[in-house]
Each structure stands twice: as C-alpha cells, then as structure tokens.
C-alpha cells in the first residue's frame, strides 16, 4: 500500500484526478465494479464475466482483435486523409509523396493496408468461430444477422479503399469487380452506373469510392458495431454451455 507521501498518492489524491476517476484504485470488488460502470469506455463490459468467456480456446479473441483493427484503421485512415485528395490528377502522386516525403508516411500507409487485410481475415474467422460454437443460436439470432452485415461492410470498406491509390492494381481490381456487379439480372447496368458514375472506371468512380469509403460505409459500420456490442450484453454475454442439462432448453417457463 502506498504511504501518505508516496507519488501515487500525490497523483491520485486531488480533485482533478478524482473528478475523472471517481473510484479509488480498483483493488477491491467495489472499486473494480465502479471502474467498469463509471467509465464511458469500459461500461460496455459487464461488471462480472463468466469464466468460460475468458477461455482463449473458445473465442481466440477474434472479436476484440477485429474491433481493435477497426480502431487502427480509423486512426491511420484519418491520418492518410490529411495527405490524400481523391482526384485522378493527385491521388497517385499523393501516395508517392506519402511514401517518400512524409514522415512515417510509408509506415502509416502500410499499417492501414495490412490492418484492412487482417480485419477481413479476423472478421471471417470470428464468424466461423461463432457458428462452430453455436453462438449464433437463440437468443443471439439477431446479433448473428448484424454480424453477417458487419462482415459484408468490412469487405465493402476494404474494396472501396482498394481503388484510392489509383494505380494499375487498384484500377483493374475495381473494374473486374464493378463488371461483376454489371451482370446482375435486370438492375445490373444501373447498379454499376450508380457505383462507377460513368461508363468506365474514371474520376467519377474515384470520388464515389472515396465518399463510400470514408463516410457512407463507415458510418453504418460504427453504428452496427455499437448495436453488435450492445446486443452481446442484452443477449446475456458471450455464449457458453447451458449450466445443467435438466434445464428446459426453450424459455424455461411452464
């Protein structure tokens, strides 16, 4: 325990600190529960969790890792926006300048790209984990549906970001993709035109993909992530085996 004159005491025993962290150091049950409920960032957690939830071999941490990658993507993405303009004249040279003349530019771009690829992977693995452990079943049906939407949004966000460097890789990957959309029966060509904004992939497509990438797809993403987390709590936390087999499986009310 810190003595009265310890540096810990000087830092924590004052009005500023205590206005931010209302509870004392979380070394008692009461303070540990308050640390969760008093914090905007942490209050999404329950105060207590099932021990089963903490088993690495059950979740592999894939949900947390996916969410963290989204945060990394947001931070590095905003940083990249400072140096990038979505025009055919500037996009490519902006990326070149980012790699050669901006401090940490290359690192930030690399992190954004690899985090995006990693997130595509972890979200898919998370989905597999949830299905194979039965986590999608009652009462979590709707959260599974939200999760599938999040997977699609992840793919679309990654795909719209893919065009932005405006190099050959981006251009042809997007052209292949939008041509696929163009083959949809009845509404294909219209859908393709809405997305590309012209007959061919060009400046219009770049602006639209940019708007989709930084806002039109990202906003639903963060809203649905919020719903996803909220539903985890409302549906009783992470899935775990039923406590006893003599429990009636459905509802439990006679």
């Amino acid at each position: 325990m810190p003595s009265n004159r310890s540096i810990t005491r000087i830092i924590t025993q004052n009005r500023v600190w205590q206005s931010i962290f209302r509870q004392g150091y979380p070394d008692t049950d009461e303070n540990q529960s308050k640390a969760i409920t008093n914090s905007w960032f942490l209050h999404i957690h329950p105060v207590r969790v099932k021990t089963h939830t903490l088993k690495i071999s059950y979740t592999w941490g894939l949900g947390v890792i996916s969410f963290y990658l989204l945060v990394v993507l947001l931070v590095t993405g905003i940083w990249l926006m400072f140096y990038y303009a979505p025009s055919v004249e500037r996009a490519y040279t902006d990326i070149q300048n980012l790699e050669t003349s901006v401090t940490f530019g290359m690192l930030m771009r690399n992190m954004h790209r690899w985090a995006a690829h990693l997130m595509v992977l972890t979200v898919f693995l998370h989905m597999c984990r949830v299905f194979w452990t039965g986590g999608h079943k009652h009462p979590r049906e709707f959260n599974w549906v939200v999760g599938v939407m999040l997977w699609l949004l992840t793919l679309l966000l990654s795909y719209t970001g893919y065009l932005l460097p405006w190099d050959q890789l981006a251009y042809w990957a997007v052209t292949v993709g939008t041509n696929m959309i163009g083959t949809t029966p009845l509404i294909g060509e219209q859908s393709r035109l809405i997305l590309v904004g012209a007959l061919e992939t060009g400046p219009e497509a770049l602006v639209r993909f940019y708007a989709l990438h930084i806002f039109a797809l990202f906003l639903p993403m963060i809203i649905l992530v919020g719903v996803h987390f909220w539903r985890i709590r409302k549906d009783g936390g992470l899935s775990s085996p039923l406590a006893s087999t003599d429990e009636p499986p459905e509802g439990g009310v006679k």
């Binding site: 529960s33 957690h45 089963h52 406590a243 509802g251």
Partner: peptide, 22 residues
Amino acid sequence: KGTSPMVGKGPEDTVMSWPHLL
C-alpha cells in the same frame, strides 16, 4: 417471462471483469 441467460450460473462461475477480462 423466461429464464435469464445467467440462470444456473452462480457467482462462482464468474469473475470480475476488472482485471480478468480487461
């Protein structure tokens, strides 16, 4: 109506989120 997802799970099956989950 219905059972809560915590039915049949006593406090002995749970731990404090701080620090175990965090």
